[in-house]
Amino acid sequence: MNEIEEEIIEEFSLFDDQMDRYEYIIDIGKKLPPLEAKFQANDFLVQGCQSKVWLHAFAKDGRIFYEADSNTAITKGIIALLIRVLSGRDPKEVVNYELTFIDGINLRSHLSSQRSNGLSSMIHRMKAYASAFSK
């Protein structure tokens, strides 16, 4: 998993300007495959203060896969990055995984400390799914 995180950090290191980093996050979000309408329901909602994320997970061949959508472009990019790192892994691995790329892409102060985008709730929910699929 470290490789993917390193990859992300390297991609972001190409930008000097924060606005360019955000543009990149937004573009990553735009490429996230659409989430089926039935998963855009309250049962799948991770509520930030302002933004909403709908998160669904399923297991296939002993691995966990995530699908998500958000009503804000930046949050959608963040969840897309989380999915890129955590999707397709052994759920046991995900449960205890310490994410490092958020520190590495120079956006931590903007992303993690704000409850408004619900980053920690997203990670928490992803690990909760992984935990359920580990049993």
Partner: peptide, 14 residues
């Protein structure tokens, strides 16, 4: 249809 949060974050950057 832009979400206010997105605008708020990008304005803060500026």
């Amino acid at each position: 249809n832009i979400h206010p949060y997105d605008l708020g974050v990008l304005l803060n950057e500026q």
